[in-house]
Amino acid sequence: MVLGVSFVDQLSTALVIGVITGGVYALVALGLVLVYKASGVFNFAQAEFGTVAVYAAYAALEFAGLPYGIALLVGVSAGVAMGLATERLIIRPLFDAPRVTLLVATAGVALLVIGVQFWRANDPALRVLAPISNELERVRVFGISVSDQRIVILLVLAATAAGLALFFRSPGGLAVLAASQEPTAAELVGVSVRRVSSLTWGVAALLGSLAGLLSAPISNFSPGFLTAGASGALIPGFTGAVIGGMTSMPGAVVGGLLVGIVESLGGLNALEGIPGARSLLVFASLLVVLLVRPQGLLGRAAA
């Protein structure tokens, strides 16, 4: 950031940058909340659905020479296929296992996928996926130019959040909730718990794929880029989901955007001398939210 800019200017800049980066976090957070609502699992493989989609789309684009739209479709299908496979091979056999086992299992899936990516695609390590449109300065907000890609992310985010919030009020969404709260009773009233489980993991993987495919073109990508590293969105996504309440779709969006804003506030000049000010601020805000409102900002308190 430029030195000598007034504090208010810096704040507004941080706000814009925060919302832009928070959009990806919120997309990841939506997928996390969906799986948590449906299976009670903290899904550490959520970001890997995205990287699988990105690598598949990249391969379709660069090696098979398919058009961009088709390549994105290939990416999304690969991500969803991985989500369904994870559900079938890992989650379903562990249906009765303790939550910690499931958490470790999804972390294992993530590490396996990252491992395979390192093995097959580490040369060159950094790759670039073309953006949807090359327009880098569609609008300027508070002097920050916002690219088309960023706008698309925010639009997709709004659409999916609204869609999911509506879905959980529909009969299908209620079936998902029923299956997670009382699997046996849900079966008795005719809800197929297995199908519901496949459905939620498929949709979650779709959300993860969108997060990956839309955020990868912003800079370059490398194996496991969405889980860790500079552009990692998994940990901020988790933080956002928990801040938002872990069971609320709008909460996930608000939480994700908030984490983005808090992170970019860490880049203020006033905090320059403190190493890791971003993560310090994120940790502090997570702690405050959970201690003051353990059910999260938009979550409902357990009875």
Partner: peptide, 15 residues
Amino acid sequence: ALITLSYGVMVQQSL
């Protein structure tokens, strides 16, 4: 778990 996760990242990047 989430708090410890955030704590770990904070310690690694800050402390």
